[in-house]
Design a protein around this nucleic acid. Structure first.
Lengths: 194, 194, 194, 194
DNA sequence: CATGAATGAGCATTCATTCAT
DNA sequence: CATGAATGAATGCTCATTCAT
C-alpha cells in the first residue's frame, strides 16, 4: 500500500481545484478541504498559496513526459514517432488545459519563479536526445541543432494544442485537420527522411 | 487634435499598469489614477476589473499587426520577409511580455471571453494572405494550407518569443541563436524556395 | 386629461419600487427609470433619497382614508361599521405591506422626520369624529375619550393586520378567525351597544 | 465567572450599536470594535451584517418576557396585573425604541426571516396562559379565545407604546393619559370583572 | 507535526449626489 | 426646468496567513 505524503496530497488537490475553479477563485481552504488536512498544515509544506505552482508545474511536465514516453515507439519510423509525440502532448493539454493556462500565468504572477527552464529541463533533454538520435541516423536534416530545436518543438506543439483546446471551441474534424497540418509542418521543418 | 475617449484612456492606462504591476497587484484605483478619471467612471465603461482584458487583447493584437506591417517589405525575398515577421513579433513580445502573459492567463481566468479567435482574426487573415501569395508565386511548398498554417505560425512564433522573454533570462547571444534556429525551422517547414 | 406632475410621478414610482425591492435595495436610479425622468431631476423635487418617505407616507395614509370612507356606511349599525373599518385597513395593509413596513422603519431611519403624527392627523381626526358621533348617540361606552382612542384603534388595527400579513403566512381560514377575534375584542373595548 | 461566547459578544454589541446609530449608519466595523474582536471573526458567526437581526430579535423578545415576568404579581387583581403587563412592555419599548424599530423593519428588509412568529412564540404562550387562567377563574369574559387574543394583545400594547415613544414626542402627562386610556380600553375588551 | 479559530489588511464595487450643458 | 455623465466617499466582505494549543 502506497503511503501518500501530505505534501503530495496538497499538490494533487491543488491541481484538481485549480483545474475546476481557476486561479483567482481557488482558495487555500478549498485545497486543504480536498486534501483532507487542516488549514494550517498547508503552511508547513508551502510558504504561500502561489508557491504550490512550481510543484504543480513539475507534476504537469512529468505528465507530459510519461505520456510521451508511453506513446512513442522507437521501432517506428521517425514520422510516426513525431505523430506520437504530437498526440501525447495534445492529449495532456486537452485534459489539463486549465491548469496549464494557470501555470503559464501563475509563474509570471508569482515573482519567486523563473524556474520554468529548470522544470522543463528533463523534457527538453528527452526531446533533444530524440533529435540527436534521429540526426545521427540521418533521419532529419543535419542542420538541426537538437538542443535549441527541442525547445522550439515543445513550445510549438504545446502552443498549437492550446490554440485548439484553450481558445477555440473546435469540432473534432477541425481538430484532426489542424493536427495533420501541424505534423506536416513539423516534418518539413525537421526535413524528415523516412 | 485627437480627442481620446474615456474608454481609450482606461485601456491605455490598464495596459501600462498591468505591464508594471501584474494582474493580482493591479488595483482599479491604479488604473483610474493613471487614466485621470474617477473610480466610478471606470465602471461606466467596464463592468469589472477583468473585463478590460479583452479590450487590452485587441490593442495588443493591433500592435502585432502594426509592427508586422511596418516591418515587412514585400519587395524583399520570402526568406527575408519571414525574418521580418519574426523580428516584429519578437519585438512586441519583448516590450509587452507581462501584458501578454496576463492576456493568455486572463482570458481563461475571466469566464466571459472566448473571443480570442475573433480578436486574432485580422492577424490570422493577414498571415493567411501572406502565405497564399507566397504559395501562388511558388515561393513556398504547395501543400501548405494557408489558413491553418497561419494560425500555427502565429502561435509558434509567439510561443518561441515568450519562451525567450518570459521564462528564460537569456543573454543576447543566446537570443540571437535561438531566433536563427527558429527562422531556419520555419523556412524548412514552409519549404521556402528563394 | 389629467396632467401628472413630475413630483407625483416620482412618488408613485417610489411607492412601486420600494414595494418590490425593499428599502436597502432600492436605488434612486430605479425610481427615476420607472418615473421616466432623468436622474438629476429627482433632486429638483426631493433633497435626498429618504426624503420621499414622508410623501409616500402621506400617500399611504390617504389610501387608508379613501378605503375607509368608501367602505363605511353610516346608515349601518356601529358594529357593522366597525367591521367595515377593519376590513378597509386590512385590505390596504395586505396590498401595501412592504411599503408600510418601510415607512414604519424609514421614518426612524431618516432623522429629519417626526412628522408621523402630522401625516396621520387627518386619519386620527376622522376616527375621532366617528367615535364622537357614536358616543353622542350612545352607541359606545361614555368613558371613551375619542381622540386618544382613535389613535389607539388605528395603531391596533394596523398592528393586527401587519401581524397577519407581514410576519405570518396564514391561511385564509386563520385570517378570518383572527379578524373575528379582533372585531369582538374591539366591540367589547368600545362597549358597543347596538 | 461566566464565559461569554464570541457570538454573544457580537449580538450584545450589535444591539448597542444599532440602538445608537440606526441600521444604515451602523458599520460592521463598529460592531466588532465594541465586541472586541476582529472584523473577520464576525463572519465566522454571521454570514452578513443583516443576519444578526434575528438573533437581536430573540434577545429583545427575551427582554420583554423577563420584564413582564418580573413585574407581574399573580397575587394582584387582574386589573392590576394588566397594568403591570402594559408597564413592562412600555418600559422595554422606551429603552429600546430604536432597536425595535430596526427589527420591525429589518426583518422585512432581510429576506431570510419570517421566523418572527417562532421568535415570539414563547411570549405568545405566556400571554395565552395568562388569559387562560384568568378565563378559568372567571376574571375575564368567557368568549375570549386565549391564543388569538394573546397575539392581538401583544401586538396592540407594543403598537401603542411605539406610537408614543417612536413617533410622538409626547410629554409625560400625555404619556400617562394615553396609557390610562389603553388600560381602560383593554379592560373593556377583555371584559374584566374584578 | 497538526490543528483550525482568529486575524485584519486590502479592494472591488456601489450609488447618492452634483453640475456643466 | 431637465439632463445624465461623472464623481469619489464609503463599506461589506474575503481569504491568505498566523499561532496558541
Amino acid at each position: 500500500m502506497v503511503d501518500i505524503s501530505k505534501k503530495e496530497k496538497i499538490i494533487n488537490a491543488a491541481v484538481q481545484v485549480f483545474q475546476e475553479k481557476g486561479i483567482e477563485k481557488t482558495k487555500v481552504s478549498d485545497i486543504v478541504k480536498l486534501a483532507g488536512i487542516a488549514q494550517g498544515t498547508f503552511y508547513l509544506y508551502f510558504p504561500s498559496k502561489l508557491s504550490v505552482m512550481p510543484a504543480i508545474a513539475e507534476v504537469m511536465v512529468k505528465k507530459f513526459m510519461v505520456e510521451v514516453k508511453n506513446e512513442v515507439d522507437e521501432s517506428d519510423s521517425i514520422s510516426t514517432q513525431l505523430s506520437q509525440i504530437v498526440n501525447a502532448i495534445f492529449r495532456v493539454t486537452k485534459n489539463y488545459r486549465e491548469v496549464l493556462a494557470l501555470i503559464y500565468a501563475g509563474l509570471s504572477t508569482d515573482d519567486n519563479l523563473k524556474n520554468w527552464e529548470t522544470i522543463y529541463d528533463a523534457f527538453y533533454s528527452w526531446m533533444s536526445d530524440f533529435l540527436t538520435t534521429a540526426k545521427l541516423n540521418g533521419k532529419i536534416r543535419s542542420s538541426v541543432h537538437p538542443e535549441r530545436t527541442s525547445k522550439l518543438m515543445i513550445a510549438f506543439i504545446e502552443a498549437a494544442a492550446e490554440q485548439i483546446y484553450l481558445y477555440d471551441a473546435v469540432n473534432e474534424e477541425e481538430e484532426r485537420m489542424q493536427k495533420s497540418e501541424l505534423i506536416m509542418f513539423l516534418e518539413h521543418a525537421l526535413g524528415i527522411q523516412n
